[in-house]
């Protein structure tokens, strides 16, 4: 893995998200109420809604367009809905958020 620093944890509000632009589109980086971070493809499996704009609760986000609930850990749609978005390795070290550059570049293949 090649971790790259994409910003400070405090740049994202608790229970919020920001996007990271890549050549293949946007990745949503989430921060939970317990200060964990997760990175997911910013396109809902339903109709590509921008997940970064959703409400974050527990370890899940509710899509802003039609309220599908997506697990931040697995990218799987919850409850009766079916679908999955790609997830990317992410971690916090010394208050900085690190993503795996390798995986981000190889995104289409993932």
């Amino acid at each position: 893995m090649s971790w790259i620093d994409i910003g400070a944890l405090d740049d994202i509000p608790a229970r919020g998200a920001r996007v990271v632009k890549t050549v293949h589109g946007c990745v949503a980086v989430f921060r939970t109420g317990a200060d964990e971070v997760f990175a997911l493809e910013n396109a809902c499996p339903h109709k590509a809604g921008p997940l970064a704009e959703g409400i974050v609760h527990g370890k899940a986000v509710t899509c802003p367009l039609h309220n599908w609930v997506i697990s931040l850990e697995t990218g799987l749609a919850q409850d009766a809905d079916e679908g999955q978005v790609s997830t990317y390795p992410a971690k916090v070290e010394g208050g900085r958020i690190l993503l795996d550059a390798h995986r981000l570049k190889a995104r289409t293949a993932a």
Partner: peptide
């Protein structure tokens, strides 16, 4: 700033 992307990796990836 919160309306802008947190990071832009498009250049690097290119």
């Amino acid at each position: 700033e919160i309306y802008a992307p947190l990071a832009n990796l498009t250049l690097e990836a290119a």
